[in-house]
């Protein structure tokens, strides 16, 4: 009897020890509900139909998503600058459970309504500022416009300058154009305006053309190339085809900033907003680059991002 009792105690001790061993091996892998990291879902919605314009920014977004544990969904429109489509897309994403939004507004006013309707969804904007948004990650649009104007003023003493406003609803684009127009007008240039429906003749018929965003500039380059024409283009923002234009001299000045940095910061800020963290002031420095300066080391760092 005594021996049986002793054996039972020994078996009990062995069982407890084995349980402790198993627990100690797997305790680190147990997903405690309160400790489980929340996967943040962020949707990025641009205003263009050609998402390649944002390829550099997407790399930065992907990096931020990896750094902050964000599940990212990148969405482009079927038709560039379609306010209704973008509005519908944003609502759909909110309905699908997106924790935060990164938006390049096609029309600022329309987006402001959505933001007011969904105050719990943090919204970060790129290119344009927005009332009700957490923060906007963009270059100083006024400064960008002034730099474009300054470049023209440097190249020409007088003449006609065409301002292409392909996204009339975008407050960021508007700010750039207005700043450029003000400067040019002040200097005695004749300023003309057109929308996204410009032709090669329209471009060719002026001394200089300002494109406040790269998509319309790419379109202009295609028109000029197809018609064997040339012109003096000044562009805000970079893209492979823009840089090629700069290299060939069709584009005479580019105001560039790090699209990678903008994309990274946009997702970083959105994730921080979703997680209730304190937001930091974004840093987007832009620079005017001419053809002869494009291979300077500091300019290369901005113009030719290294993809990973």
């Amino acid at each position: 009897m005594k021996r049986k009792h002793k054996n039972l105690i020994q078996l009990g001790i062995l069982a407890i020890l084995s349980l402790l061993v198993i627990l100690s091996l797997f305790i680190r892998d147990i997903s405690w509900p309160e400790k489980a990291e929340r996967r943040v879902e962020i949707s990025v919605i641009v205003r263009e139909s050609d998402s390649s314009i944002w390829s550099e920014a997407r790399q930065g977004m992907a990096k931020a998503a990896a750094d902050y544990g964000v599940e990212l969904r990148f969405l482009a429109l079927g038709e560039s600058n379609s306010v209704s489509e973008q509005t519908e897309l944003i609502r759909q994403e909110i309905k699908n459970g997106a924790d935060g939004l990164v938006v390049v507004p096609a029309q600022t006013e329309a987006l402001e309504v959505i933001v007011k309707d969904n105050p719990k969804i943090p919204v970060v904007t790129m290119e344009s500022s927005l009332e009700g948004a957490c923060i906007s990650v963009m270059p100083d649009n006024v400064w960008v416009g002034e730099q474009l104007a300054a470049a023209i003023e440097e190249d020409f003493s007088e003449g006609h300058v065409l301002l292409v406003d392909a996204a009339p609803g975008s407050s960021g684009i508007r700010a750039r154009l207005e700043a450029a127009e003000e400067s040019l007008t002040e200097k005695g240039f004749t300023v003309l305006r057109c929308g996204a429906d410009f032709t090669v003749e329209t471009i060719e018929g002026v001394d200089a053309v300002i494109f406040p965003e790269p998509e319309s500039a790419v379109h202009a380059l295609q028109l000029l190339d197809q018609n064997g024409k040339t012109s003096s283009l000044y562009v805000a923002g970079t893209e492979e085809r823009i840089l090629a234009g700069l290299e060939y001299g069709v584009i005479r000045g580019v105001v560039a900033w790090s699209g990678y940095g903008v994309g990274y910061q946009a997702v970083e800020q959105a994730a921080s907003a979703v997680l209730g963290k304190e937001l930091s002031e974004p840093v987007v420095e832009s620079v005017l680059v001419r053809k002869e300066e494009m291979y300077e080391i500091e300019n290369q760092k901005i113009l030719f991002p290294i993809g990973h």
Binding site: G60, K63, S258, G261, V283
Partner: peptide
């Protein structure tokens, strides 16, 4: 001068 860095673009962007 950085030739390779995992956060090379972030450095270039001053982030």
């Amino acid at each position: 001068e950085v030739i390779y860095h995992p956060d090379q673009q972030l450095i270039y962007a001053g982030l």
